[in-house]
Computed example of a mutant assay.
Amino acid sequence: KILAHGPGVIAWVDNPDGSGSWHQLKPNLKPQDAYVIVHSSNSSDITENNPPAGKAYSAGSTGQFPIIAVQIVTPKGKKPDVIIVSGETPIGGYEPMWTSEYYKVPLDGPQVISNIFAWSLEMTKKPETSSSSSGSGSSICGPALIVGLAALPLLLRKKRE
């Protein structure tokens, strides 16, 4: 169990330059090598609190929605890159997913977020496989930098205490 205090949902566009159509992220409709790793409960609902309206999901929809997704992209001849997309603040923010307790309810936030970062680092160590997706050949920022930036607020918070 983790806290998602008003998260956004994850959607995707079928053309990387942004001119394509927006889609809900579903197991049978998703980019290659993309996976939902955290989703809302089955009783979640979508509301529009600020304009503009969403392009893939509609206000009033209920059900289970993707909150964190990953895509593993392996540029030809290179090791995999892991892109993590989150509709909620993992670390920092008003009430982040990192929270270990909320109104005296114990949560698994620190373990879940740590597991996501550890897994993404392991994935970038794997050699290219024949079933991996092809990329544009340009490198993207790896998870090590994300982990470094994510840990910074924790270090600053500990200093203040």
Rank of each mutant, 00 (worst) to 15 (best):
I10W: 15
S100A: 11
N50V: 10
K30S: 13
K26R: 14
D81I: 09
G142I: 05
K125S: 06
M123L: 14
S44Q: 03
A11E: 10
V13A: 08
L155Y: 05
T62I: 07
E101N: 05
P31I: 01
K26W: 05
S41W: 13
R160I: 04
F65Y: 03
E122W: 03
I84V: 15
S100C: 05
N28P: 03
D14L: 08
P75Q: 11
P16W: 06
G148R: 12
P27Q: 02
E101I: 04
R157E: 09
S43Q: 09
A118P: 06
P31Q: 01
H23M: 04
G77H: 00
K55P: 08
V85F: 05
S134W: 13
I116A: 00
S43L: 08
L25I: 13
V70T: 15
G77M: 05
V9A: 12
S136I: 13
I10G: 04
L121Q: 11
R157K: 15
T47L: 11
L154K: 00
P16G: 04
G18S: 02
W119A: 09
P27S: 01
W119R: 11
F65N: 00
E88P: 04
A53G: 01
A151T: 08
P80Y: 10
T47N: 15
E122A: 13
G142E: 07
P66N: 07
D14P: 03
V105K: 07
H39F: 14
S138R: 12
V85R: 07
P52F: 00
P27W: 00
V70R: 08
A11M: 07
S132P: 01
S41P: 10
L154P: 04
S86V: 03
D17E: 02
L25W: 12
G6C: 03
Y57D: 10
M97D: 02
S133A: 11
K126S: 13
K30E: 03
A4S: 13
I83R: 12
K126Q: 13
Q32G: 12
P96D: 02
A53W: 04
S132F: 11
A11I: 04
V73P: 02
V70D: 04
V85A: 12
S138I: 15
V82T: 07
L121N: 09
P27K: 02
S58C: 07
V9W: 05
Y57W: 01
N28S: 09
P16V: 06
Q71K: 09
A150F: 14
H5E: 12
S114R: 09
I91F: 15
G87K: 05
K76S: 14
V36R: 01
S131T: 14
L3D: 06
K30Q: 06
D17L: 06
L145K: 15
V70W: 11
P127N: 11
H23G: 03
G137T: 04
K30N: 10
E48N: 09
P80F: 14
E88G: 05
A4M: 10
V85D: 09
K30Y: 08
D108C: 10
W119N: 14
P90Y: 01
G93K: 03
Q24T: 14
G93D: 09
W98L: 14
K159M: 11
I84R: 01
L155D: 04
P31D: 01
C141Q: 15
V147S: 11
G54V: 02
K79M: 14
S19W: 10
P127C: 12
P106D: 08
S132Y: 09
S43E: 11
I146K: 15
K79T: 13
